[in-house]
Amino acid sequence: MRRSLQAFVVIIISGSCLFLNSCLEVTCIDETEAYVKANFYSYSTGKPLVPDSLTLYGIDMENVLIYDSVKITPPALIPLRDSTNHAAFVIRINGVNDTIEFIYSSYTHLVTKECGYSTYHNIDTTYFTKHAIDSISTKNKSITTDNVENISIYY
């Protein structure tokens, strides 16, 4: 009887510690935004060339700039619109304006229970003007939270 009581106490105490520990809430530590990740290159040499000044904003979103005349640390992060299958941007490279438009499909992806859901995209087509930009090469069509280069902009 005494031995059973000891076993009972040990099981109750050790089990209660584990039970309480299992109720702890965890915070989100993962990246939740899926951006188009763009790197810049010299069209003449093909080597990486970060613009001295980059301005970027969405068309119809002139009041909210993504980059405002800054020298960025690559890659440039370009957010796509969730509610439609296309998004267009004005990109000003060293004072010269161009536009880039992405046509894509979207789908929902669970990041983690704590971080919730993100919207991932698959780029179908990229359109752009050629004032400062020479060409755009699509390296990876899948737009996720992974740190992978999606497009290369040659200027």
């Binding site: 969405g58 909210v64 957010p79 969730d82 509610s83 859901y117 919207t119």
Partner: peptide, 12 residues
């Protein structure tokens, strides 16, 4: 499911 980014808030 609510998502918010540069373009605003969207729901699915």
């Amino acid at each position: 499911i609510t998502h918010e980014n540069y373009w605003g808030r969207s729901q699915t």
